[in-house]
Design a binder for these strands. Structure first.
Lengths: 204, 204
DNA sequence: GGAAAAAATTGAACCAATTCTAAAATTGAG
DNA sequence: CTCAATTTTAGAATTGGTTCAATTTTTTCC
């Protein structure tokens, strides 16, 4: 069952993703023709559609890798948060934001976000929603941790608060990728300013 | 200059929008072929492209009408807000949300949102961003009004707070339109729960 | 080792948005 | 009323994502 066929399959997956990632970066998502990706990956167009339901799912696979890395990096912050609520939030969200343009260009993010709202039931659409939820859960976990450490009032609704913080950051990030000239430093500063209101309300 | 030609132009605009709106609702955005819209509106395909840059811009025109109506309705709340911070926010956001599915189906919203992130520099992309900003400004105005009425602490950063409230609502709304089975009542309840944290922090 | 079954690959065909072109219609100015 | 400018029109051409029937490769089983 897991012989030559499985190895070839994994290899083709890899080749397709690598070819697509290079072309998306190089020519942009729209500019990257399936035909070109196929040629670069040394498979046929039909094979690509055998591996991914549509063009968006190829991008989706790349985005998922990126976000999963970020989730791993975030675990450290949750485990050992700075001893100050504002800094703790800033550190975690900072990791998300600073990582974000590592593998993905703003244009790729725009496309990924667009596809995830356009086709919420496609494989990628569902995966993207799951990733958002995972990020929300991590922020919630951080807040719960800060509560356990006695840094956040324990009567605070950490679930609602986690959502609030994530939703705000995510929306700010969407606006950030929509403007090519927007800078990461300004994005972080704006989010810090918004979170300051919350921090004042929830810190012990 | 503004004789018959201008009237016919306005009339064609109207016919195209009406035909498109009906078809988008009926067959969905993807299902509505430009050819069919053209036939329904009694113009040619070329004429549609003379009036709108692309299919998305047609949807954009419909979305803009919807949001502009909502902005008008919101003015009343800002002028005469309920004498309670939580209720005031709930009333304003409630208007936005309750109106939202009046002319537009969830699928139309999904497409509109997708296009606005996918093509932020297209006519519709820019218009959509402007509408978001207008909604944010209205929320900010409400908060400033509540401050003036002595219901909100005056040391609160109303600009950052307005953004925070809008961003959270908008993100919740995006998730709402992504799930066909999601209900308006639940959406409002979730947003109320999140805003409760803020209200506790800012109310006098 | 070889035949039959199962799975995967291929590239040509299909579809809908968009663009383009040449002809026809409409308008406003003089 | 006539003419030049602008707009509309029909439809053909283009483009790129997606599908599909035929073929090839891999596996399974004897």
């Amino acid at each position: 069952m897991s012989g030559l066929r499985a190895r070839q399959k994994a290899d083709r997956h890899r080749r397709i993703i690598e070819a697509a990632a290079a072309l998306f970066r190089d020519a942009g998502y729209e500019g990257a023709k399936i035909e070109t990706i196929a040629a670069q990956a040394e498979v046929s167009v039909g094979t690509i559609y055998n591996y991914y339901q549509n063009k968006g799912d190829i991008l989706g696979a790349i985005v998922s890798m990126e976000v999963n890395e970020v989730l791993i990096a975030g675990q450290d912050v949750v485990a050992n948060p700075p001893a100050n609520v504002g800094d703790a939030l800033d550190t975690l969200l900072g990791i998300y934001i600073e990582h974000s343009l590592h593998y993905l260009s703003k244009e790729m993010w725009r496309q990924a976000m667009a596809i995830s709202t356009q086709l919420p039931d496609s494989p990628f659409g569902q995966a993207y929603t799951a990733l958002d939820r995972a990020l929300t859960e991590q922020i919630r976990a951080l807040i719960a941790r800060l509560q356990a450490l006695g840094l956040v009032r324990c009567d605070i609704d950490w679930q609602a608060l986690g959502e609030l913080v994530f939703n705000n950051m995510n929306m700010m990030f969407i606006e950030f990728v929509k403007r090519d000239e927007a800078r990461i430093a300004e994005l972080r500063a704006a989010i810090r300013r918004q979170n300051r209101i919350l921090v004042a309300a929830i810190a012990v």
